[in-house]
């Protein structure tokens, strides 16, 4: 078990289980679709098309979650990102500059900088993921178990529902980060209003 996993008390699934081939194939297909859509987001010359391609990427992420039997996270992904964030982006675009057809000024000259940041981010995330999970495989019983540290003595771990396990983790072990995130988002909102309305 690696450092990160040990620190968080994540119980890694077994490495002896057989590989679930159909799941892996599904992952590969979805990943290919997501990569293609992500490339289209940055190469298309129309803002609305870019937003729609971004929806495809986010829907692919939701599908990956469902493939991992994390249906709560998958549906939340659809509700929050597709149902709210991109809708607001599209709304903003339509109110300001929703041109039909291609916009030649959409690509900036310094896009190389963005590419470098993307590669560095990919490297970091890939390293963290591989370092944490190594060659662990998904257990056949996909119900999420609570981290071992969460379960007190003589307490039976609650594994009957993924949603319950997620909420126990969010409102138990990760309550403080959650609250801090809430304050941060509120601060961002207030800041945005203060910037937008100078009167």
């Amino acid at each position: 078990m690696t450092l990160l996993a040990a620190a968080n008390g994540i119980s890694l699934p077994g490495t002896d289980d057989p590989i679930n081939v159909s799941q892996t194939v599904g992952f590969a297909l979805l990943a290919a679709l997501m990569i293609w859509a992500a490339i289209r987001v940055v190469t298309t010359r129309n803002v609305v098309h870019a937003a729609v391609w971004l929806v495809v990427v986010l829907a692919g992420a939701a599908a990956q979650f469902i493939l991992l039997a994390a249906e709560f996270v998958g549906v939340t992904q659809v509700m929050v990102y597709i149902g709210a964030v991109i809708v607001l982006i599209l709304f903003g675009v339509m109110l300001t500059q929703a041109k039909l057809g291609n916009d030649p000024n959409l690509s900036r000259r310094n896009w190389y900088g963005g590419a470098v940041v993307a590669v560095v981010l990919f490297g970091l995330l890939a390293f963290a993921t591989i370092d944490t999970f190594e060659d662990a495989k998904l257990p056949e019983d996909r119900r999420m178990a609570l981290p071992a540290a969460e379960v007190g003595d003589g307490e039976v771990p609650r594994t009957e529902s993924n949603t319950g396990a997620v909420s126990d983790a969010v409102f138990g072990a990760y309550l403080l980060p959650l609250e801090v995130l809430g304050v941060l988002l509120t601060a961002a909102l207030v800041g945005a209003i203060a910037v937008a309305r100078k009167d």
Binding site: F72, M79, I82, M94
Partner: peptide, 28 residues
């Protein structure tokens, strides 16, 4: 009967907005 059935309903009503938004925009 998914374990998150009612959230699925909310998610779908979120997606339904796209049809109307994109229809209006793409009509030119």
């Amino acid at each position: 009967d998914p374990p998150v059935g009612i959230l699925f309903v909310l998610a779908m009503s979120g997606i339904a907005v796209y049809g109307i938004m994109l229809a209006g925009w793409s009509s030119g």
